[in-house]
């Protein structure tokens, strides 16, 4: 089973985000970067498929600046086989159309049965790249997947996916793009031998020109702002439960007017 895993490096969820002086973006100093959590589910699932079929390959595709090698190495330490790192200033803006175009170009020439994306990257929160990539490759997509079952002949995949208020089960021919959702699996940790091995695994570094692309963004973002600061409201301490409940329920009706 051959999988491509599209993996983005993102700021750790602990990061306190601050907007820069001119509102053109966020302050990146001192940010600790990690693998996008949904992409971690993808790596784990791709490894499990390779293990299940006792053959195949897991290739990591990452677009981003030099620091992203770290994320690729972590995935290799988990057990992925090799990485492709598209490292080029012209595609560092995270525009999902450009990401999908670049990932599509990076995937050409590679063999795959399935392509994994995260259902969203937790920095820009677009939740678009997987579906765009699938369309550009003219293959189906199954988004928000929480369970994957590949047939023995590797021709079809059956997935459970989240929908509002429930789940649905869908089936499609391979190759396709799936986008990982929480619940898919529990990602493994890199083992010490895994970390040692990862150092020797190949990571091919490419520019956009190598891929024959001249990407143009479809989106522009500016006027970055912080959310309005929420002030602590009224806190009731030391009241009897019944009294506290009464005060707050009444405030919700007459003051906040939400019930």
């Amino acid at each position: 089973m051959k999988s491509l895993v599209c993996l983005k490096q993102v700021p750790d969820t602990e990061t306190q985000i601050k907007v820069n002086g001119d509102g053109s973006g966020i302050v990146t100093d001192g940010i600790k970067y990690v693998i996008n959590p949904y992409d971690e589910f993808s790596v784990e699932e791709a490894l499990r498929l390779k293990e299940k079929f006792k053959a195949g390959e897991v290739v990591i595709l990452t677009i981003g600046p030099d620091r992203c090698v770290e994320a690729i190495r972590t995935a290799l330490a988990m057990g992925a086989d090799r990485g492709v790192h598209v490292c080029d200033d012209s595609v560092n803006n995270g525009d999902p159309f450009v990401m999908a175009q670049t990932l599509a170009a990076a995937s050409s020439g590679l063999e795959y049965d399935i392509i994994f994306c995260g259902h969203r990257a937790i920095d820009d929160d677009f939740a678009e790249t997987g579906a765009m990539l699938a369309e550009m490759l003219k293959i189906p997509q199954i988004t928000l997947v929480t369970k994957i079952d590949v047939s023995q002949d590797k021709k079809t995949v059956t997935c459970e996916r989240d929908i509002e208020g429930g789940k649905e089960i869908v089936e499609c021919a391979l190759p396709c793009v799936v986008t990982s959702q929480k619940g898919l699996n529990e990602p493994r940790y890199a083992s010490l031998p895994g970390i040692m091995k990862a150092k020797k695994k190949p990571v091919a570094k490419k520019t956009v020109a190598d891929l024959g692309l001249a990407p143009a963004s479809k989106l522009q973002g500016n006027n970055y702002t912080m959310p309005s600061v929420r002030q602590a409201g009224k806190k009731f301490e030391g009241l009897e439960p019944q009294e506290a409940a009464k005060v707050v329920v009444q405030a919700l009706r007459s003051e906040a007017k939400v019930i």
């Binding site: 999902p96 929160d125 678009e128 997987g130 765009m132 988004t143």
Partner: peptide, 20 residues
């Protein structure tokens, strides 16, 4: 859930972007 599935695929067909 449907919009997240449909909007980007449609945009890619049209060669446009989506602000989500």
């Amino acid at each position: 859930m449907q919009g997240k599935d449909l909007a980007p695929r449609t945009a890619a067909k049209l060669g446009s972007g989506v602000m989500s």
